[in-house]
């Protein structure tokens, strides 16, 4: 039996206490299977980023349950001792801007993750080069970050998210700074990588250009999620 890559049920998050308390998440349910790319859309303040931060083990939910690849990581409290290692080994992040480390070259930006996980420099760089080649930026492996175009930087960021082959990737508006063509290219790459590595990818977006590309979409409004079959699937 294949476990869902992400399974969330009844997840809540409350900021503040007493009269000042704000319920950002009011019982989120979500299931994402391995190899699936899911859109998460909603207006500003709807709780998208809070959900992403809870999933990324960056902030602690208030209650509910979360599991990654069948392993419960949160059940009304963290069930994992080392959240840093959890983020490093099992979650990939792609941000609105690439946020590459400017003083490292392209290869080392990608190799940094496996190195942080304890892999030797040589092996980590080999793996980084393979991942860069898979994303068609292998020829820029020795380049410095400022020498890359915006699209190339985003590909390198995706390579960095994938290099430890995590079961899930959380992408926070990854196409926001890109034009339509490049935005669609990034989504195509994410879909390819999801298929190739069996990675579940959640893409938070406002970008109407890419919304039709998702097979499944979660709308989030007032801290609750509503699932909708995407246009790609309907088509």
């Amino acid at each position: 039996m294949v476990h869902p890559a992400i399974e969330i049920s009844g997840l809540t998050k409350r900021y503040g206490v007493g009269d000042a308390a704000v319920d950002a998440l009011k019982g989120v349910d979500m299931i994402v299977r391995p190899g699936e790319v899911v859109g998460l859309i909603g207006p500003s303040g709807s709780g998208k980023s809070t959900l992403l931060k809870c999933l990324g083990a960056v902030i602690e939910p208030t209650s509910g349950r979360m599991s990654l690849a069948g392993e419960t990581i949160y059940d009304n409290g963290w069930k994992v001792a080392d959240l840093r290692a959890l983020r490093r080994d099992r979650i990939g992040f792609v941000f609105q801007a690439p946020y590459l480390i400017p003083f490292l070259d392209v290869t080392d930006n990608v190799a940094l993750l496996p190195m942080l996980a304890g892999m030797s420099n040589g092996k980590a760089r080999d793996r980084a080069r393979q991942m860069l080649a898979a994303l068609d930026v292998g020829h820029r492996a020795q380049a410095q970050v400022p020498q890359l175009s915006g699209g190339e930087q985003q590909r390198v960021a995706i390579a960095r998210a994938l290099v430890n082959q995590p079961p899930i990737i959380l992408a926070d508006e990854p196409t926001a700074p890109l034009d339509s063509e490049r935005a669609l290219t990034v989504i195509r790459i994410l879909n390819e990588m999801a298929q190739r590595f069996g990675t579940a990818i959640i893409v938070v977006t406002h970008d109407e250009k890419i919304i039709p590309t998702f097979r499944r979409i979660y709308h989030i409004r007032d801290g609750r999620t509503y699932e909708q079959a995407g246009e790609a699937r309907a088509a």
């Binding site: 992040f93 941000f95 960095r160």
Partner: peptide
């Protein structure tokens, strides 16, 4: 700050 936040997010230890 942004680079440090990214480093922490991707799993860099405080001592690093």
């Amino acid at each position: 700050v942004r680079e440090i936040a990214v480093l922490k997010l991707i799993g860099a230890r405080n001592r690093t």
